[in-house]
Amino acid sequence: MLDDIPEEEYLYKGNTACAGCTAMLALRYILKAAGPNSMIVNPACCSTVCQGPYPKSAYGVPVLNIAFAAAAATADGIASAERNKGKNIIVFAGDGGTVDIGIQALSGAIERNANILYVCYDNEAYSNTGMQKSGSTPKGAITTTTPTGRKDSKKDIDFIVMAHRPVYMATASSAYPKDIYKKVQKALSIEGTKFIHIHCPCPSGWRYPTERSIELGKMAVKTGMWFLYEYEDGKIKLNPPTVAALKKPAPIDDYIKSQGRFKGANIDAIRSEVEEGIARIKEMV
């Protein structure tokens, strides 16, 4: 029923993630694609807690938990050891650990072309600590540190990563798990630093009913609030859902109004932000 996606699960049932957590959905497919010959490096983020507490873990591959800013360098250390050649070394980090505190280590690792796959699951805030603003929080969103909505614009980590000219970079969405599976498989077939940035709606932080996690992920893509593309050989290739969305973006109103975090937000300001984003990505293609 899942086409050629293997049935084996490396994410165990009964983890500590919130109901409707799409980061765990993304991880489920990352691990299916990577398989048992893989190791996860996990900086501080929701995923730290999702594993469950000692002496149990919900993750079915070896995991090394590490300090917030250290994931990319730690993964490089594992990947550099001769004994780990041929193994998939995967960072699974949130947006705060990637876009903010971990960006220096990430930048250094890509520059060195460390043989790792760095996955950033992006729930657009420090969700683990109760929804504080991160560099990835979109304009207008209410967080506990932007209680009247974020006034400035989010940091575009994808363009920053691309400026390093990595061997492979892709965006993805938890609403498209088969796409995640394919992109992870492809990334792991390439030597060097790969970066996959996965949009992961968060019912607890974004304040929407848990059952709408997939729906909202798809809406983000259809409105042009999130793009699906791959970067290889210096070129961006848009994926079909984004090709369609850029031809005729869906109105953002439903997406905004579905989420408590945008309560009272200036929809026009968000709309022009989205339009600017669409114009930027069109220029890149």
């Binding site: 800013a69 250290a70 730690t74 490089d76 250390g77 594992i78 930048s107």
Partner: peptide, 21 residues
């Protein structure tokens, strides 16, 4: 590994050592 900071220097050593190197 020619790391970009000391924080990463020890982080990389931790990764290597944690895998038994």
């Amino acid at each position: 590994i020619r790391v970009e900071s000391e924080h990463s220097a020890l982080a990389a050593c931790i990764g290597a050592s944690a895998s038994g190197a």
